[in-house]
Write a protein that binds this DNA or RNA. Structure first.
Ligand SMILES: [Zn+2]
Ligand SMILES: [Zn+2]
Length: 662
DNA sequence: AGCACGCCGACT
DNA sequence: GTCGGCGTGCTC
């Protein structure tokens, strides 16, 4: 090596450019690759990561600036970390610099965002009461089967609600920890609760484990992340963002509720934490476990074709627990609903009731019966939602708030009416049916205050509440043992959605809601209000035959050429000016058609589901590929052309690979 | 992405 | 006459 030539480092920065920037760094060595640096940038400074050392640069020598600081107090990213980042950057067609910076905890991305702590904190210690409950036969055989393969393998555990999946995870985690390897446990955002953390703490009182999610303060998140990187933390419990945590001795990843949409990042680097976790396991040559009561069709297909190993947990682990009894009932236009009797019976037994309606507010429509006028958001292509308590009209997409109209702005009629029901109106209706029952409404409006979830949970567990009215928020990740009746309202709305994933999602949601009824020893009841009792999703649900449903749905996907039998990418574009959006997408389409590719199908640009949001017109262009590899080849050259399009400069656009909604 | 520079429309 | 719109180019 030429000792005379000055050392140059290539630094990756958080910029939408597919290249690094060269700086002088006289004292840099190969050990510094993967370290964070402070560099001058224009008039200011930025944090970057050293990608490589070199001795020459194509950039004019007199313009190359000096690195201001190399932070050597923490370990550099290692070869495995780079392997994942490079895969991620190329697969999602996202600049490497932005990918690297996105994986760092926020405090480590900014100049002055991180000071090493004065004193090394002692890992938290909990009272020692480590207890591993005995596994049943089914659980034991799954654990045995998975332990037999220490190398890369994807295991899909299909476990019905209450089948004791978590104990299987814990048992496997324990074995891997004993072998001296680190473990990553990924759970949906909504499931990462203090209760889950306590459960881990009780199970491993003396283990150094950390929990990583967006609720942790920036400083603390960086501190915990670094303990994982140094190998001090042995177990990481985290949401999707934790999939990037550097873990030098990683030996197992568990993705619980693998079907959950929160594993998909919906802005910036639009990755699937589940898919990246699988890639990470393959790169690191260790097993990964996906678990769900309602696996995604992608995973199910891989299991059916033998690429994943399928394991079943068919029995409920809790002794005596049985499946809830399911009833479909037509909606009632007037008078008492069909479920009114069972509601009263349940309450009179002193048991709790959950009424599920996936729509907050009082009513989704305010209209004038005289002229037909409807309250719409001026900035979005949606109707405004009536919030009666605050006497407001609100847009749930852009946050716009208006005072509720007293009269029709179009014809002056003073008798305005609402249509449809939200949580607030259901709450009101239930107060009329059961005036003496104690009601609690749980949606993002009533839970806006910090700590209100915790308070509500205690009230419910303490049986200070008889009827719960709520949205999605209420259903996921929480068990309420006294709950024995679940009523699902307005399920029909999602029955005829145009999204090809609608059935899969509805099935998962309904099964999860149903699972809330009658845990423990009590048999529960579930009533679903529907006018389409013959719908395949409802039929499958009635039969409790998830695997048949998945097979049927898979056959339909194959027939229609939808994923997992084809691969998708979406080019999304938005701007205040519709013309600019459509011109860009049309040019993009022409480029795509000219380029073409094996098995590549280019669709026409169409408005997005939410065609206008906060004043921005949103359109999209779907690309379908028969094979993952050929789609990747096509996308790689297509994005280069897109970046060169002048019409793309005055709009926002993103390319999304494997979109979860289209 | 930011941030500067630069050139045309409607304002004190 | 200037304030400000956003189109264009640059950042090692
Ligand atoms: Zn009117
Ligand atoms: Zn709006």
């Amino acid at each position: 090596m030429d000792l005379q030539s000055p050392v140059i480092v290539e630094v990756l920065l958080d910029l939408p450019l597919p290249r690094g920037f060269d700086y002088h760094a006289a004292l840099a060595t190969e050990e510094d690759v993967g370290r964070r640096v402070k560099v001058p940038w224009g008039t200011g400074q930025k944090v970057g990561v050293i990608r490589a050392l070199k001795h020459t640069s194509t950039y004019p020598a007199d313009k190359i600036k000096e690195v201001l600081e190399i932070w050597r107090d923490v370990p550099p990213l290692n070869a495995r970390d780079w392997q994942l980042l490079e895969f991620c950057s190329s697969y999602y067609h996202y600049p490497l610099g932005q990918t690297v910076l996105a994986m760092l905890p926020p405090a480590l991305r900014r100049v002055g965002g991180w000071q090493p702590p004065r004193r090394v904190r002692q890992p938290r210690k909990y009272p020692s009461q480590s207890s591993a409950p005995p596994l049943n036969e089914a659980q034991r055989s799954v654990v045995q089967a998975i332990l037999q393969q220490p190398n890369f393998a994807v295991h899909l555990i299909h476990g019905v609600t209450g089948s004791g999946k978590t104990e299987v995870y814990f048992s496997l985690i324990e074995k891997v920890l004993e072998r001296g390897r680190q473990v990553l446990l990924l759970v949906p955002e909504i499931n990462l609760t203090p209760q889950l953390e306590q459960r881990l703490a009780r199970r491993w009182p003396n283990l150094n484990w950390i929990s990583l999610h967006s609720g942790v303060s920036e400083k603390e998140r960086a501190r915990r992340w670094l303990t994982a990187q140094t190998g001090a933390a042995r177990l990481v419990l985290g949401t999707r963002l934790a999939v990037f945590t550097p873990l030098p001795e990683l030996g197992l990843i568990v993705v619980d509720e693998e079907h959950e949409a929160s594993f998909k990042q919906q802005d910036g680097l639009r990755y699937s934490a589940r898919d990246l976790a699988i890639v990470r396991a393959r790169q690191g040559e260790f097993p990964i476990i996906l678990g769900s009561a309602t696996p995604t069709l992608e995973s199910w297909h891989n299991a059916r074709t033998g690429r994943y190993q399928l394991h079943h947990l068919r029995e409920r682990a809790v002794p005596g627990a049985c499946l809830p009894q399911l009833t479909l009932a037509p909606t009632m236009q007037e008078g008492l609903p069909h479920w009114a009797t069972v509601l009263h019976e349940t309450l009179s037994r002193g048991e709790q009731v959950l009424v599920f309606i996936n729509r907050r507010g009082y009513a989704p429509v305010l209209y004038c019966p005289n002229c037909g006028w409807q309250a719409a958001c001026p900035r979005c292509s949606v109707r405004l939602v009536v919030h009666r308590r605050t006497r407001q009209l609100r847009c749930h997409h852009c946050g716009l708030e208006q005072v509720l109209h007293e009269s029709c702005p179009s014809c002056g009629n003073v008798h305005m009416e609402t249509r449809g029901e939200g949580t607030q109106q259901v709450e009101e209706r239930l107060r009329n049916y059961c005036p003496s029952a104690r009601l609690l409404r749980l949606d993002s409006d009533s839970l806006a205050l910090k700590g209100s979830w915790e308070r509500a949970r205690e009230q419910i567990l303490d049986h200070q509440v008889d009827i719960l009215v709520g949205t999605q928020l209420l259903v996921k990740g929480h068990d309420f043992p006294d709950l024995s009746l679940v009523v699902v309202l307005n399920a029909d709305q999602s029955l005829f959605s145009s999204d090809f994933r609608a059935s899969e999602r509805l099935y998962a949601q309904l099964l999860q809601v149903a699972g809330r009824a009658g845990r423990a020893e009590k048999a529960g009841q579930v009533w679903i209000e529907t006018d389409y009792p013959g719908h395949p999703v409802l039929l499958a649900l009635m039969q409790h035959e998830t695997e048949n449903f998945l097979d049927q749905e898979l056959a339909l996907r194959r027939q229609m050429g939808w994923p997992p039998f084809n691969y998708l990418a979406i080019l999304r574009a938005e701007a205040r000016d519709v013309g600019k959006v459509t011109v860009f997408l049309e040019e993009a389409r022409q480029k795509a058609l000219t380029r073409g590719g094996e098995g590549i199908c280019i669709f026409d640009p169409v408005p997005s589901t939410l065609a206008r949001k906060a004043g921005f017109h949103r359109w999209q262009l779907l690309v379908q590929g028969a094979h993952r590899a050929s789609l990747q080849v096509f996308l790689a050259s297509w994005v280069d052309e897109l970046r060169a399009l002048r019409s793309g400069r005055s709009i926002h656009w993103v390319l999304e690979v494997d979109p979860w909604d289209c």
